[in-house]
Design a protein around this nucleic acid. Structure first.
Lengths: 157, 157
DNA sequence: AAAGAGATGAGATTGATTCTCATTAGAGTA
DNA sequence: TACTCTAATGAGAATCAATCTCATCTCTTT
């Protein structure tokens, strides 16, 4: 994928890591080993995860990280826009990693619980238009579409 | 508004009332005095309200209705599609009355908390198209746009 | 090594919502 | 009216994710 002659660039999650470090710096906060562990777990996670899963995962590592610290760090990463908090209709929240600046919405299957991401430019445009009409200055939005996914539809017939 | 010669039609919330009664009937449930009190409170409510507000309101009436019954009845009305449960980003849920079959989305001001409703046909169309592309059968959706309302923008400048 | 600021962890607390279960209400029947 | 059966209710307990408290710890800087 990377053109052979392109300049070396941060690999893995270097960019996100840097973003978080700078964010902490700006706030006069430190990148402690605990925060680093949480960040690593989050950046390597794929899809959606619960805070509790991070807690459990980190229990297996050498460094102990308390539940409180996990929640606190997730909040920081949210402010830094590295993760988003999701409400998928369950009693607890999910989180997901956000690739710097990219936003997407969700199709949630009410039968199997599968969550599919999508991004649609036209949708954003129409939303912007709605906001304009209301003199509303948008910061972010959340669109959840509930229904049945293709797989479940095929099973049910 | 009503043409003078139009046939008499249910006034007030007769239609909703009937819908609920039929719904209960179908389920082999009864329209008790408690359920009736909750229904009345909800149908007369304007805008968004919390379950707790219904509890408090009903405390003032002659008939005592417990918190459990309020929650249970709200759930029934939700199934009957007379109310919708909203997550406005607060730790607790809001409810709102739905005029039979009408859906709308929300602009939520993160500064003053004001919630504005809107409905946009084009938005629905684009969403339907997204679903079609994913072979997803939509049952309902929830769009929340967060930002600053006109009033707050004017104050802040 | 002393000081100061931020960070952490264990456990307590919160708070909305749900659950439990003994009691009550209401419809139908004898 | 008395009896029965089922659904409904209410008080308070339970749940559970999330937050808070505060004593302790870690760094960094004097």
């Amino acid at each position: 994928m990377t053109p052979p002659l392109s300049p070396p660039r941060p690999s893995g999650h270097q960019r996100e890591r840097l973003a978080f470090e700078e964010f902490l710096e700006r706030r006069g906060l430190k990148l402690t080993r605990q925060r680093e562990a949480v960040m690593k777990a989050v950046l390597e996670a794929s899809g959606h995860f619960e805070a509790e899963e991070v807690v459990t995962l980190l229990r297996q590592g050498a460094l102990r990280v308390s539940r409180a610290t996990v929640y606190r760090t997730l909040d920081l990463m949210k402010e830094c826009q590295l993760v988003e908090k999701l409400d998928l209709g369950t009693p607890h929240s999910y989180y997901e990693q956000v690739n710097l600046g990219e936003h997407h919405d969700h199709l949630i299957c009410v039968t199997c619980g599968a969550v599919t991401e999508f991004h649609d430019l036209e949708l954003e445009t129409v939303q912007a238009e709605v906001c304009r009409r209301h003199g509303f200055s948008i910061t972010h939005h959340s669109l959840r579409i509930f229904g049945q996914c293709q797989a479940c539809l095929e099973k049910t017939g």
